[in-house]
Design a protein around this nucleic acid. Sequence first.
DNA 1: CCCGGCAATACTTTTGAGGTATTGCCAGCA
DNA 2: TGCTGGCAATACCTCAAAAGTATTGCCGGG
Lengths: 310, 310
Amino acid sequence: MEARHLRYAVALAEHEHFGRAAGELGIAQPPLSKQIADLEREVGVRLFDRTRQGVFPTAAGEAFLARARRALDEIAAATVDAGRAARGETGRLRLGFVASALLDPLPGVLSRFGRERPDVRLELHEMATSRSSPALVAGELDVALTLGPPRGAGAEHLVSVPIGRDHVIAVVSTVHPYAGQQSISADQLRRQPLIVSAGEDEPAVVAGLRTLLGTDSSALGGATVARDVHTIIGLAASGVGVGLGPSRMRAVPRPGVRFCEVTPRTPLPDLILSFAARDHSAVLRAFLDTIRKNCPDVGAALNDRLRPHT
Amino acid sequence: MEARHLRYAVALAEHEHFGRAAGELGIAQPPLSKQIADLEREVGVRLFDRTRQGVFPTAAGEAFLARARRALDEIAAATVDAGRAARGETGRLRLGFVASALLDPLPGVLSRFGRERPDVRLELHEMATSRSSPALVAGELDVALTLGPPRGAGAEHLVSVPIGRDHVIAVVSTVHPYAGQQSISADQLRRQPLIVSAGEDEPAVVAGLRTLLGTDSSALGGATVARDVHTIIGLAASGVGVGLGPSRMRAVPRPGVRFCEVTPRTPLPDLILSFAARDHSAVLRAFLDTIRKNCPDVGAALNDRLRPHT
DNA sequence: CCCGGCAATACTTTTGAGGTATTGCCAGCA
DNA sequence: TGCTGGCAATACCTCAAAAGTATTGCCGGG
């Protein structure tokens, strides 16, 4: 049985007349008669009653037609859905990201993307840089935001684009003696109880702090370790010590604390967006476009990437 | 687009390999390649990625395949449903009936039919004999149970079969003086307050009572009129008088009353089953068959009707 | 009894699905 | 680097069947 049989049966039921139905279908009457006869033979049941008053579906015909119409609807929808998927209007995007990305670029990016692509299912996975790259290579993620470029097996199949610079800043309670300072020096920091984020997950951040405080400094060893920047800020607010974290944490609105620059200015690894080089999906392209529109200082590589409309 | 394209795409997605999918479909590989290419051209989107590792659906392909599978399921179900409808396993039966039919043949018939044809939707319409026949002729009913044969315009297009005889019986309270009698005479009835059913809807019943009591009798004029036999029995039980009704009302289980024959035995119109002569639907045939199995004294016409398996 | 309208049948044409043979394109390997 | 094997695409042919034309057959209404 072919879709043609369904279309013909539906048209015949619609017009209740072989000649007119055939005309509507753009064919002559005899072929329509034959196709309907073939259909009835295949189904094994008379689907239409031919009377002088017109051609009407039998009970079996009504049952058949109900299914036939649904089948034809599905077929029409198949083309529509395929087109929407190809244009990236539907689908799925699995995004891996480091926690600090939640502070700055992600809120704007995600809300904009959700508005532009309401039918794309976003799957968000907070994970350390070290876990993102293998997941991208294995095809478990579509795109990742990491601190520093991806490394490890298969990294050469990934495209990486820096989308934001970062450096170390301090956060102190508004009643802390340093709160009035424009910036805090490394020496001052070494004399204070410090609060830093859990180091093992993001060694690049730890390296930055070591650079700032000196590799032999015992300040880091004695520091309070917090799981995330919110905790750092909370602890700093309550006067436990001076929090150290990425400048991105300025984005967290919180009364009772002050953010201060630290001298010397200590760069942290760039926030890097990466994805599989062979991935040309429209959903990914749309996401990259959103990133470009939301992040002022994206690398040229991303613009290049968005040029070709393959 | 034809169902063939859907089947081929589904098979290709299943086997992830043009050659093997073609083998499974019973065709050679080149035609499959061509059909898939044609499909992709028509949809306007690449549906499969051909890689060295195999052939995999693109995101658009996945969206397309989901619809394609549903469409194929509908097509398969269309044939199945048409067959079930043609065998009378599904569908609708609109039954018109006089209230007294609810007493005797209908409970058994309906429960049996409901068991044998669980997927047939039964539409039950209690109506007077005079309304059933036009409804049958107009195609608003499929089958009717009436008192006496159908009459009126178009009645010649109806088939009528007597399925049960009936006569007048009396119902009295167990404490009524007549309660002990084997039968009650017409004379005795004329000396009692009577309870009869509403006459206008079923003139044939009124005619029967007139025959029994005498056309000039004032007994009928002074009788209490009840809407249905349940009311007659209820009023009789409470001692209002002697109820007169069809022998069918014996089927109503009710403590506190006794049913008595009436002499002379006064026949009431036969219970008649009728339907459109041109109606050959399987659901109707199944219903007639149920009637035959449930009513011992159906006319030969019904058995004739069930013979041909057209 | 003829006529008109309609579906079915008979027969022809033509489209396109499917078959065979071949090419082209890599990936793996010597 | 060239060779080979596996696979999809291309080229070309064949034939089934979809569609067209002409005609018949069947009623129902003048």
